[in-house]
Design a protein around this nucleic acid. Sequence first.
DNA 1: TTGTACGCGTTATCAC
DNA 2: GTGATAACGCGTACAA
Lengths: 341, 341
Amino acid sequence: MDKKKITFADIAKYTNFSKTTISRYFNDPDSLTLENQEIIAQALIDLDYQENKLAKVFANGKSEFVGIIVPNLYLHYYAEMLNQILNTYEKFGYKFLVFVGNHQKEIERQYIQELLAYKIEGLIILSHTISSEELASYNIPLVVIEREDRHVNSINTDNYMGAVQATSLLIRNHCDVLLHINSPVAKDIPSYGRIQGFQDTCREHGVEHEMIIRNPGHSHKEIHACMSEIYEYMEQKYPGLRKGLFLANDTMANSMLNVIFRKHGSLPDEYRLIGFDDSPVADRAILPISTIGQQIDKLAYEAMELLVTLMNERKKRRPMPQTELIHKNITPVLIRRETTD
Amino acid sequence: MDKKKITFADIAKYTNFSKTTISRYFNDPDSLTLENQEIIAQALIDLDYQENKLAKVFANGKSEFVGIIVPNLYLHYYAEMLNQILNTYEKFGYKFLVFVGNHQKEIERQYIQELLAYKIEGLIILSHTISSEELASYNIPLVVIEREDRHVNSINTDNYMGAVQATSLLIRNHCDVLLHINSPVAKDIPSYGRIQGFQDTCREHGVEHEMIIRNPGHSHKEIHACMSEIYEYMEQKYPGLRKGLFLANDTMANSMLNVIFRKHGSLPDEYRLIGFDDSPVADRAILPISTIGQQIDKLAYEAMELLVTLMNERKKRRPMPQTELIHKNITPVLIRRETTD
DNA sequence: TTGTACGCGTTATCAC
DNA sequence: GTGATAACGCGTACAA
């Protein structure tokens, strides 16, 4: 077996160059004559050299690792975000060490320690458990996506604009009353904008409206039961009126649509419905659901681009400490399907 | 700022021990007196020591990295598998370097090179692009999941048994004719078992049956159109008969159910339907869909457990070369919901 | 129980 | 354009 690993020393011996020259071949090839480049290139093939980035990292301190902590991969939103982030490898060359937090604060802290031990150059946080204040204290290039971000850089969907688009569409659909169905949301997280945008738009247009805030749980069954209950409530409170429903996410929207569809065998004219996220479930529902599409690809790209500039700054001989935080908003897009006109 | 990093040398100086003793404190604490352990523990706090695993890895050669190549994260199946694999960190302590292949063979080869350069100890492959023969040639502990596995170790769902369960259920549901709807599948990949299991079970029970093999494309729209067409075909060919549909995955099953439900306003008694995968879409459909549940948690765990034994063997002074490949099957579970009795 | 000296495979800093 | 030598931070004989 070819057990022994080939190193620069072996190549140097084989080619009668020094290790330095071999190193230069990789890092600054043009400083060698073309002829010598070819000699070394051939030696690499002859010896079947396998580069060792760990040694390289150790020597120069640039690990090219970025850590990611994501709350889960069960929600399509997080899976797709991770996908888009991983795909930036082609563009930026950073490798990713990924951890799933599962909403356990202490475990996530441990993950961060582990990541720091591996000398990651930067960190992307999607989970919500650790406060931005604590995150900032780690003193490492860091970007959070769509979460509380008072003390750290962030990329967020413009939830407010998304809600405005959704609400406006329902108004244009001539709904008599608008309902926003959501779970309890803290005011300091970006998705609170969905509530504000809904309320502001309704008031601005003088439309009758109501907020329905429930904690439906996580299982499909619980959500379905919750939507059933809300459906009965609406039927009783607003009989005969055209109801425009803005659901906080597509999972809820799908459940609600199923409830309505199974009662009526179709979506009656009395209901208009729009979700949020553009997750696959919206498109695959019994009737394709209108929704607000988060531009996950852009969120991911902007996050990495920002992180890369932060990491590059850190690498300079005299790094400028970041003077003010960057918060960037990405506008979502309205996706009209069959649950609105 | 605390820019300069604390090393064992600093701790040694601070405590008047040698670097070796500090090293031992971490790797074999009991070889020090309790008193001295406490002295060092205190020093770590005083100096705010941050461990450097990269240096450790470099010195002893054990990176504790495992590489993963997954085809995409769009399909819930892969996202959940990745999730379950990442969660084995708690159990085995291996960190994961994750790449998304996107079905590009040359790019995946490049990823593997990158992973090797980072001295990964093992590799888990979920993507299908690179042949098992080529994978085996990399000569590194390796496990593939649910793909062609002639020359490598693998963990697979027992697709045959899954199909038998699905088909048997449809037979018990007194279906007059059984239809298996699938896309073209190569015989050497595990999911071909779904076809064999269906055919064998039908023949064994002497039930009329038909295979419908189509390439429906990937978008929801294409799949929906394809299912519509198949629906019309079935209606015409088997009028009045109770049709038992075994769909190759839940996405197809959901589409087909939507087609039927929108025609009839419900699922008529003339149809029974079962999918495969137990993906979220099955549970969230207009009628919760019966399905064959892949035990993704077990697949992931078994894969890592096998990989760990391979990696451990490799670390021994005189590693036993693996004499024969291991292929392990995980039996899927029948999940009865509302599209079967 | 503790210390000395060297090795791991690169890059960086000087020289030439 | 090229080479010698010293880092980088830790593990590991071997010695005491």
